[in-house]
């Protein structure tokens, strides 16, 4: 028996806004603990991990572990048809994922399950010297400030500030955010803004957002739901100076 019911489909929708812009296909794994997926884009620049705990769902029936391979673009088209006050139900029938939204009207979509073309490695664990929290809206606005001058951004964290800096052909920009965390080391790394914007498409997911950084290390952006009921995290490879 496999049936998941979520009274707030926006968690799913906002996760897949980002996931579908990064990867073409994903394997969604569901077992008695919850739902999770790991995926990496074809160029191996961005890794994404989604975890939704069993207790986040209003109904969670999953008698045996199941793997659902889906085309993210197709699933996103369906999720876009949900309204925030709809109740979402996921079931499986034969070779399809059945997605139902029920509000004023009831809509049922059958999304064909696919064969995956490649395997996704397990989530890497990286030790970071620096970790801060930042409201995701603040991060988004800062990136919007930076992107008017350049297509890459330097993240620089010291004991007081997160600074985002860019040097453009015609203009330079710098945004400073007083992070208020205990930071004992400095960290600096450069990233492509295009990739950061893909991750920020999930902005509505988050209650709390963490940035982990080290010198020329990947950026880890973690969006966490209240009571750790869910987590969406991204790992973005840096650009480095030759």
């Amino acid at each position: 028996m496999f049936k998941l019911i979520l009274s707030d489909p926006s968690i799913f929708k906002t996760s897949f806004e980002a996931i579908s812009s990064i990867v073409d296909e994903v394997q969604i794994e569901v077992d008695s603990d919850g739902l999770r997926l790991n995926a990496i884009d074809r160029s191996h620049i961005t890794y994404v991990h989604l975890e939704l705990k069993e207790r986040l769902f209003d109904v969670f029936q999953c008698d045996e572990p199941i793997k659902l391979n889906v085309d993210t673009e197709e699933l996103m088209k369906v999720l876009k048809r949900s309204k925030s006050d709809d109740v979402m139900e996921l079931t499986v029938d034969g070779g399809s994922l059945i997605v139902t939204f029920e509000g004023a009207i009831k809509k049922t979509f059958k999304v064909k399950l696919i064969d995956l073309e490649y395997e996704t490695p397990e989530s890497p664990s990286i030790e970071y010297p620096v970790k801060i929290t930042i409201p995701i809206k603040t991060l988004k606005e800062s990136i919007q400030d930076i992107e008017i001058v350049a297509d890459r951004v330097e993240f620089n964290i010291d004991q007081d500030f997160l600074k985002l800096k860019a040097v453009g052909e015609f203009s330079d920009a710098e945004v400073e955010y007083l992070h208020g965390e205990k930071v004992t080391e400095d960290a600096r790394a450069i990233f492509a803004i295009e990739n950061i914007k893909e991750m920020l498409k999930a902005e509505k997911f988050a209650d709390t957002t963490y940035i982990s950084l080290g010198d020329d290390m990947p950026l880890t952006l973690t969006l966490e739901l209240l009571n750790e009921e869910g987590e969406l995290s991204f790992l973005l490879a840096p650009r480095i100076e030759e």
Binding site: I45, I190, P218, A237, I240, E242
Partner: peptide, 11 residues
């Protein structure tokens, strides 16, 4: 000069 790295070295 800058270049884009990949995540391969972290797996």
């Amino acid at each position: 000069k800058q270049r884009q790295t990949t995540l391969d070295m972290f797996f």
